[in-house]
């Protein structure tokens, strides 16, 4: 049957962003990064990246600045909780929906 074929007969997922589906639609609160507080942004150095390390969905990049893939971010808020400089805040998605209307 072959490995690829077999994988397609079952639910099989590998580590990586979004292998559980488009989970971004589950989000109630969106993480928003303040570059003025973010350590790698401020120092322009590969440092900290605690948000990247803790994100359970692997949707935060290890880049300067760190980017958040909102297609797959479930909005769990772990990044905001762990950020040592409180550079990430969780903002109600309703706010963005209103902005989109405007």
């Amino acid at each position: 049957m072959g490995t690829r074929n077999y994988r397609r007969k079952t639910s099989h997922s590998e580590h990586g962003a979004g292998d559980g589906g488009r989970t971004g639609s589950w989000r109630v609160e969106r993480p928003v990064l303040d570059r003025n507080l973010c350590i790698p942004c401020k120092r322009n150095k590969e440092a900290c990246f605690i948000c990247w390390l803790f994100c359970p969905d692997v949707v935060i990049s290890r880049t300067i600045p760190p980017t958040i893939n909102l297609e797959y971010c479930k909005g769990c808020g772990i990044c905001a909780e762990e950020c040592p400089t409180k550079a990430i805040t969780m903002v109600d998605e309703a706010k963005f929906a209103e902005e989109d209307k405007e």
């Binding site: 639910s11 590998e14 962003a17 979004g18 559980g20 589906g21």
Partner: peptide, 18 residues
């Protein structure tokens, strides 16, 4: 070569990591 087996499968199809 770690993988999750028989994970939650949504009602619709999805793009996998590959």
């Amino acid at each position: 070569d770690p993988a999750n087996l028989n994970t939650v499968t949504l009602p619709d199809v999805r793009m996998d990591v590959r």
